[in-house]
Design a binder for these strands. Structure first.
Length: 585
RNA sequence: GCCCUUGUAGUUCAAUGGAUAGAACAGCGGACUUCUAAGCCGUCGAUGUAGGUUCGAUUCCUACCAGGGGCACCA
């Protein structure tokens, strides 16, 4: 429709002997001002030095003599010179039909058709807890993956995990010094995968404490680190393999709960070597070896291999890629990872999701890569998330543990279960619903605001499910489902009239595809979240003020179709946020 | 010190240079013996400060104030 109006205006401009393509067509915030609105007269009036309102009148007159104004009921000049378009009843009726036909396809676009997009997100580290930041990255990455998919791309989901490095050695040190291990080795560690993974996470933080406070422990951890790398100690190898696979398995359980499935798992241990080779080959052309400090020189060390970002863009800075001990840093691994992705899948776009602290660093790394491969510069995108802060200020979960991503999820689910106590549902059903709704409460809290900003997670409010929340959206859909189910046996013969008035609900539903396009172009899932709240609110208003399943409702057939169309839109929209809709709740 | 980023209602968030700055929560006030009240309706209430560009600025530019992040061998 937007394209159609745009074309119409351009034709009119031509007949009026004017030019201009920098005008915009948008939806007025208030329905009173029409369904579409353009500022073309205001933009053009300046060049012509005429009054914008007069010009607008002229354009409208010209528009109205045209034959192809189907689906437009009225065109009007308003305000400072806006031209407002009012869509006809037929347009909205057709739109409902279109949605019922398209079903899961409703809202898709072809902005990326034939393209391949790789999205990397979550990136937890084996041996460390899956914390809240990983939860955020997962929610965002999954949503972005789906938005990209809805735009016609083949989406490839990737996860990048740090399976070597000091954190692993700290965890192993913690395990070696734990009571449980001392008694009977790792076989003595009992519990579910998730419990064992939590225990390993605890060993990590204990090991980490020792590293910071105890010189002997620090030395020992450095030896373990080397042993992990060299694989020359049987006992350490055994613990390493066991710990790595246990924590990875625990992550999989969380992904399942969250509704994510990765095609690729990349590991730092593999990327280090690849990156190192690339960096060394590009020294000194891209990277430079800095002079060693006097201290380093005394130890017989060389300078670090660095990249001077500021030489290419003064907003960038210098970063070390290979340190003076000859070890590759994270930057180098990132290069290895990026190049590996392009070699394996050659995606048209490669999106990475990380915490916002990495924003400046990533710019430098991506600059270094684009100097070696100029064609990749425009294909790499980095999106970030802020920190999740808990408004209550509490740092431990209901069960008294440190708040990990998983404990936050479990708490959400527990509260939902509690709320459903009174509902007439089986225990099995309640459990399933509490999982879906608990995940939704969290995901929505993360996705409702724009990327990069911190999120204040209010336990009480987010789980209260009022208003601006995931469960509110789900509940709205469940109500729609419920009425559709009840209507199944009802005969709608003689109730096929189409109402003359168009509801706000219909005026919102048809915008869905535009919202997705916009959300994709900005890589911002929150536009969808905002839209769905508006949609749900319009539905609840309709539902609350319309008696549908009553004998005297002669619009029943249309109303039921409208509800179906709403429900399809809500379902597709929630899918884009990675949220499922329960049958009942 | 330099670079990036954010300041919107009591609180948590929206707003592709457009019309009367939109929600939710909290507060206050309603309706319903109707299809799920986790709902609906009404009401109170906000653009950090000072300039500039523009027909029009929450949005762009400059300065200041206040938060967050980053700036060489961590990830």
């Amino acid at each position: 429709m937007k394209e159609k109006i745009q074309k119409l205006i351009q034709e009119v401009l031509k007949t009026l002997d004017m030019e201009g393509d920098n005008f915009s067509i948008e939806h007025p915030t208030d329905f009173k001002n029409g369904d579409y609105s353009t500022n073309v007269a205001m933009v053009c009036a300046k060049q012509l030095k005429t009054n914008p309102r007069d010009l607008a009148e002229k354009i409208v007159t010209e528009l109205c003599v045209r034959q192809d104004l189907t689906q437009i009921r009225k065109v009007e000049v308003a305000g400072a010179g806006f031209i407002n378009f009012y869509l006809s009843r037929e347009f909205f009726t057709e739109n409902v039909k279109e949605i019922l036909n398209k079903k899961e396809e409703w809202g898709k676009n072809d902005l990326l058709s034939g393209k391949k997009v790789m999205v990397e997100y979550t990136d937890p580290n084996p041996f460390k807890p899956f914390h809240i930041g990983h939860l955020m990255a997962n929610a965002i990455g999954e949503s972005v993956s789906r938005i990209v998919e809805f735009s016609g791309a083949k989406t490839i989901r990737a996860n990048y995990q740090g399976d070597v490095g000091p954190h692993v050695a700290k965890a192993i040190y913690g395990i070696l010094n734990s009571e449980e291990y001392k008694i009977n080795g790792i076989l003595n560690i009992k519990g579910t995968v998730s419990e064992v993974a939590n225990w390993i996470g605890k060993c990590y933080s204990e090991g980490s404490n020792f590293y910071d406070t105890d010189e002997d422990a620090k030395k020992e951890i450095e030896l373990i680190n080397k042993a992990v790398y060299d694989k020359n100690d049987d006992e350490i190898n055994k613990i390493y393999e066991w710990g790595r696979s246990t924590t990875l398995e625990a992550f999989e359980e969380i992904y399942k709960l969250l509704g994510t499935k990765f095609e690729y798992y990349f590991f730092e241990s593999d990327m280090a070597k690849i990156g190192e080779k690339i960096v060394k080959e590009s020294t000194p052309s891209v990277f430079t070896e800095s002079d060693p400090t006097p201290e380093q020189a005394q130890n017989g060390q060389r300078g670090a291999i660095v990249f001077h970002g500021e030489e290419y863009d003064k907003k960038l800075h210098t970063r070390v890629f290979i340190n003076s001990q000859g070890l590759p840093t994270y930057e180098t691994k990132e290069i290895g990872l990026t190049i590996t992705k392009f070699e394996k899948e050659n995606p048209d776009i490669s999106i990475i999701t990380t915490a916002i602290e990495q924003a400046e660093y990533m710019k430098v790394v991506q600059k270094a890569i684009s100097i070696m491969h100029p064609d990749l510069e425009k294909r790499m995108k980095h999106i970030t998330h802020g920190m999740m802060k808990l408004s209550t200020g509490k740092m431990s979960s209901r069960k008294g543990n440190v708040i990990t991503g998983e404990s936050l999820l479990r708490d959400s689910m527990d509260i939902v279960l509690e709320k459903m106590k009174e509902r007439d549902l089986s225990e099995e059903e309640k459990k399933n619903i509490s999982e879906i709704v608990g995940v939704s409460a969290l995901k929505y809290s993360i996705l409702r605001s724009s990327l990069g900003s911190d999120i204040i997670y209010d336990f009480e409010k987010s789980i209260s499910f009022d208003g601006d929340s995931g469960p509110y959206l789900q509940y709205t859909s469940v109500r729609a489902n419920s009425i559709l189910k009840k209507s199944e046996g009802i005969d709608t013969n003689g109730k096929n009239d189409i109402p003359e008035n168009v509801t706000d609900l219909e005026k919102i539903i048809y915008k869905f595809p535009e919202v997705i396009e916009y959300s994709y172009s900005e890589l911002q899932p929150h536009h969808i979240a905002t839209y769905l709240i508006e949609l749900a609110s319009a539905f609840n208003n309709f539902y609350g003020n319309t008696q549908i399943l009553v004998e005297e409702n002669k619009y029943m057939a249309y109303h039921l179709n409208l509800i179906k169309a709403f429900n399809q839109t809500m379902k597709n929209g929630l899918w884009l946020l990675g949220i499922e809709v329960p049958e009942r709740m």
